[in-house]
Each structure stands twice: as structure tokens, then as C-alpha cells.
């Protein structure tokens, strides 16, 4: 199943610190061709009877043409606020944002013709009308020439399997159908930049897979730039070649996904079942004892793949007890991100 969450730090392990650094170089080279470029972008929300909240705090990054970037972080980290500033919905408190070379606030309408945006929790479709009519209206809003619009709508309907739903009012669509319809609506005008905010939220495994395949194909064919926020690490793994992690409105990491795991030292966990109750397995080299169950019959040891190997740990355990069974848990990327949050502010950079 391609939607699996675990990923192997060993696979992406070698010199991932430098992968992130290389990114920096690529950015400065491609700066003139940056599709998104933000500099010290800040948005402060005033809160009555409370201190002001800097939802986005002096953020600086850029995204080159054709890149696919995952923008991840906890709830309230500032992801959506950044996106709203990139798309001309929210005015920055300070700093600058340029999207497709335009100032999003001043050039909102021009920008709207060049980008496609899906906010997973908001709809751009006409709730009471058959889905097909929403496409007609949006095509007209984007001033697509009717014949070209018909071709494009036909393509999207086929690729996203929306044919059977065209005559249905949007309000009667299932969540999966609606999300695919939202994506189709956002891509109708063949935007050069697609911004997806939680596009797979609430979708079942099959719907997710279908949506991802579609996005991969779109990028391959059109070279579209993609910025994606998500809580679903499967989205990032499948769709993105670069990850930005935002925490408390600040950029906490910029690099590859495997680089992210390497930087924070994601640990594997060895679970051993022993033949009899055994004292806690403290002191196994390069491991951290996590706990035991059944009076020590099952024990958990965490280790860093950079420092030792599963075989070495097993050998050390075998010297102290007789093994009956074992399993290894790979680090979960959400866990990796959580580690970034718990690191001291600004402590980790790619």
C-alpha cells in the first residue's frame, strides 16, 4: 500500500544535511524564476484582551518553478495564514510576498487567473446547482474560450472520474467526490501554480490514492508548481520533493523529507519477545530502553540507525536473554515533525 506512513531513514540517510544546503543554492540561482518568494513575511492577529499573535513570523523562503513543496506543521503553526497571504486573501502585517511575480494583494485578480487553490475545508462550487454548472461558471469567470473550456473540463472529468456526478447538485456529493470536484475546479484554467490546503482531509485511502495519482500526472504533463499543506505524510511522501516545516509561524526546516528525518535523528524501535521474564535491558550500546510489558517478557529499545544496526542490537540482547520473536517499528514522519516542534526554537535548520 503506497499510503503507508512509515519511511526508512536509512534509505535517505546519506548526507542529507547537505541536500538541504544544496537547496539553498538552487534557490538563489533560480531566484528570478521563483514562483513563490517571501521575505520576512509576517502576519499578526490582534486578539482582544490578549497579547497579539504572530501567526506568521518573519518567514523567508522561495519556491522555484516546477518544484513540489510540502508545507507542514501543527495546527495553528501558520500554514493557512501563509497561504492566504500568498494568494491575496490576507494582507501581510510586514514583509513581502510575491507569487508568480505579482504582489498578491495588489494583483489579486491577475494572480487568480494564474493560480489554482483548494482549501480543503471551503468550497468554491455552487452548492445548490449540478456540478457541471459550477464548471461552466468557473470557466467563464476565468474567461476560457468555450471550446477550450469544454476540452479541459472533459479531461478533468475523465481523469478525476467525475462523469457520474456532473448532473448531481454539489450538496449531494460524497466528500471524496467533492474534493475531486474542488481540485478539478481549481485546475480548470491550467494554473502555473497549484496550492492545496489539506486536500486529502477526511478522504478514504482509495480517494486519496486517486487524487495523488492525478496530481502526479498533472505535474508530469504540465510542469506545474505545487505547494501543499497536509497532515497526511503519505501526501508528502508521494507528491513532494521538498519539505518546509513551519512552527509557531517560523520556518523550522527546509530540505528533503529524508533530510528532515536525518536531521532530527528519527529513531527505529526494536521490540523483542523473550522466553522468560527478564530484567530491563538497560545498557545495550547505542540504545535507549523504552519500556517493558509482561514482567519483562516484551521489551522496547530505541536506536538511531546512524549509530548502530538492528543486528548489533539483537546480538547484544541475545547475550542477556533468549529471543523468541522480534519486530522493528520504523519512525513515523509525524513523530519526526513532533520532534522538530519540541526542539529549541531555531535549533534545527536544514
Amino acid at each position: 500500500m503506497t499510503t503507508g506512513r512509515a519511511f526508512r531513514p536509512t534509505a535517505g540517510r546519506p548526507d542529507d544535511g547537505s541536500a538541504a544546503a544544496a537547496h539553498g543554492d538552487a534557490d538563489s540561482d533560480a531566484h528570478s524564476d521563483a514562483v513563490i518568494s517571501v521575505e520576512r513575511l509576517t502576519r499578526v492577529f490582534r486578539r482582544r484582551g490578549d497579547t497579539d499573535l504572530a501567526a506568521v513570523d518573519a518567514m523567508t523562503f522561495s519556491v522555484g518553478r516546477g518544484e513540489a513543496v510540502g508545507y507542514i506543521g501543527a495546527n495553528g503553526a501558520g500554514k493557512s495564514t501563509t497561504i492566504k497571504m500568498l494568494t491575496g486573501i490576507l494582507a501581510p502585517t510586514s514583509g513581502t510576498a510575491r507569487t508568480c511575480g505579482l504582489d498578491p494583494m495588489r494583483g489579486r485578480r491577475e494572480l487568480a487567473r494564474r493560480i489554482g487553490v483548494v482549501f480543503g475545508q471551503r468550497s468554491q462550487l455552487w452548492w445548490d446547482l449540478p456540478l457541471g454548472e459550477s464548471f461552466d461558471i468557473l470557466a467563464a469567470i476565468h474567461r476560457l474560450e468555450p471550446r477550450r473550456a469544454a476540452t479541459r473540463v472533459g479531461q478533468l472529468i475523465e481523469l478525476l472520474d467525475l462523469g457520474p456526478t456532473l448532473a448531481q447538485p454539489v450538496r449531494s456529493l460524497s466528500l471524496g467526490q467533492r474534493m475531486r470536484a474542488e481540485v478539478a475546479a481549481a485546475l480548470l484554467h491550467e494554473p502555473e501554480l497549484i496550492i492545496l490546503d489539506e486536500p486529502t482531509i477526511g478522504l478514504d485511502v482509495l480517494s486519496k490514492a486517486r487524487l495523488r495519482e492525478f496530481l502526479i500526472a498533472q505535474r508530469r504533463e504540465h510542469g506545474t508548481t505545487l505547494l501543499l499543506t497536509t497532515h497526511d505524510m503519505g501526501d508528502i511522501e508521494r507528491l513532494c520533493d521538498r519539505v518546509l516545516v513551519v512552527d509557531h509561524g517560523r520556518l523550522a526546516f527546509d530540505g528533503t523529507l529524508s533530510g528532515l528525518a536525518g536531521t532530527v535523528g528519527a529513531q527505529r524501535v526494536l521490540i523483542v519477545d523473550l522466553d522468560r521474564p527478564t530484567d530491563a535491558l538497560h545498557g545495550i550500546p547505542h540504545t535507549r530502553w523504552l519500556g517493558a510489558e509482561g514482567e519483562g517478557v516484551r521489551q522496547r529499545l530505541a536506536f538511531d540507525a546512524a549509530d548502530t544496526t538492528a543486528a548489533a542490537v539483537l546480538a547484544a540482547v541475545a547475550e542477556r536473554a533468549t529471543l523468541r520473536d522480534l519486530s522493528i517499528e520504523e519512525p513515523d514522519i509525524e513523530d519526526v515533525v513532533r520532534r522538530i516542534y519540541s526542539a529549541p526554537p531555531g535549533g534545527i535548520t536544514g
Binding site: 492566504k84 485578480r109 491577475e110 487553490v117 468554491q124 469567470i141 476565468h142 474567461r143
Partner: peptide
């Protein structure tokens, strides 16, 4: 509700 965001994503006033 914030749904106004969808309105501002369209190239029309």
C-alpha cells in the same frame, strides 16, 4: 466563517 477566501480566489470583484 472565512468562506470569503473562496470569493477572493476568483478573478472577479
Amino acid at each position: 466563517t472565512g468562506d470569503i477566501a473562496a470569493d477572493f480566489l476568483r478573478p472577479v470583484p
